[in-house]
Structures are given as C-alpha cells and as structure tokens.
C-alpha cells in the first residue's frame, strides 16, 4: 500500500469515528482544535488504528498526534518497522 492509499484509508476511518465528512479532514487540520475531537475520541482513533494494523501504539505516542498527517506518519513508521 502506498502513502496515498494509506492516507485515504486512514482519512475514511477517522471520518467515520468522528462523524465528520471526509473532505473536512484536511492533512494538517488539527483534529482537536479544528474538528472538535476531545481527548478520548482521539484515543478512540488510535485504538481503531491499533486494532486494524496491529500496531501496539505505546501510550506515550498519543500526545504527539494532532493531525491526519501525524497519524499517517505514525502508522507508516510502525508498518515499515514490522
């Protein structure tokens, strides 16, 4: 899966979880301040990614994730090291 496909897949997943249209989830939009995601919903996104890609994301990484780009970067990095 290339980076573009991965981004599209994750955007679609994030949109379903936060119940927003996909086109609102811009790569650098802050999920928390721009899209109204609360801290626990942010963790729900990570929990879903963790399950889908078997990532085992450590808790310490959660605070680094603010945008779609951050998520894609993290997932790509985990998948590359698998």
């Amino acid at each position: 899966m290339n980076r573009e496909q991965l981004t599209a897949e994750i955007r679609s997943m994030v949109a379903r979880i936060i119940k927003q249209p996909e086109d609102r989830i811009l790569p650098d939009a802050n999920l928390f301040s721009d899209l109204g995601v609360d801290s626990l919903l942010g963790v729900e996104i990570i929990a879903s990614l963790d399950r889908k890609y078997s990532l085992d994301v450590p808790e310490g990484r959660l605070k680094d994730i603010k945008t779609l780009n951050d998520i894609v970067e993290m997932v790509a990095s985990f998948l590359a090291n698998k």
Binding site: M13, R16, I17, V43, I46, A47, S48, D50
Partner: peptide
C-alpha cells in the same frame, strides 16, 4: 469493521 472491539485498547491504557 475496523473500529470494532476497541475496548481492549482502553482497558490496556487504564
């Protein structure tokens, strides 16, 4: 679905 079964992750965090 991909989102299903996220409770296990929450339990781990807690």
């Amino acid at each position: 679905k991909a989102e299903e079964g996220t409770a296990a992750y929450w339990r781990k965090l807690l």
